Amino acid sequence: MVSRSIESEWIDVKQRPMPSLYKIDVQTKTPKKITSPTSNEGDFRPQYINNKNKLIWIRTNREKANVWIANPNGLNQKIWIENINPGTWYYEHFSWDEFFSLYQP
């Protein structure tokens, strides 16, 4: 899983396109979009929960964030943790470890 956005010119940060999550077939190197956030939101930091066979990621509008959970193919998406602070960021690089860490026993 990767978080990617479309290319754009170097414009004001609030006008930059936000990323979605893509699943990459390593055999064919073909990406498949598995999330569709609204135009003012972006999906970041995908992580796989191995013992639960779930995918989690952070969706933010640059002001607040939610942690989402779904099947690895993107189906059955729902908010898992609501209204968390997205922490500090610098040119679209968020420091997610400042406020969210996934513990897997």
Rank of each mutant, 00 (worst) to 15 (best):
V2G: 09
S5P: 03
I6K: 15
S8V: 10
E9F: 11
E9L: 14
E9M: 15
V13N: 09
Q15D: 14
Q15P: 02
S20G: 12
S20D: 14
L21P: 00
Y22K: 00
Y22N: 01
K23M: 05
K23R: 11
D25Q: 06
D25V: 10
V26Q: 13
Q27K: 11
T28C: 09
P31G: 06
K32A: 00
K33I: 15
I34D: 01
I34M: 05
T35N: 05
T35K: 08
P37E: 01
T38D: 02
T38G: 05
S39T: 15
S39H: 08
E41W: 01
D43E: 12
F44Q: 09
R45D: 07
P46S: 05
I49F: 04
I49N: 07
I49E: 02
I49T: 03
N50R: 09
N51I: 06
K52E: 15
N53V: 11
K54R: 14
K54V: 15
L55D: 02
I56R: 02
I56G: 02
I58P: 10
I58C: 06
I58L: 08
R59W: 00
R59N: 00
N61P: 12
K64C: 05
A65C: 02
N66I: 07
W68C: 03
W68A: 03
W68F: 14
I69G: 03
A70W: 08
N71C: 05
N73L: 02
G74I: 02
G74A: 00
L75I: 14
K78W: 00
W80Q: 07
I81M: 10
E82F: 04
E82K: 11
N83L: 00
N83A: 00
N85M: 04
N85K: 08
N85F: 08
P86L: 04
P86W: 03
G87V: 08
G87D: 04
G87H: 04
G87C: 06
T88L: 06
T88N: 13
Y90H: 13
E92K: 15
H93D: 11
H93Y: 13
F94P: 05
W96C: 10
D97W: 13
D97R: 13
D97S: 10
F99T: 14
F99P: 12
F100L: 12
F100V: 14
S101Q: 15
L102C: 00
Q104A: 08
Q104G: 02
Q104I: 12
P105L: 04
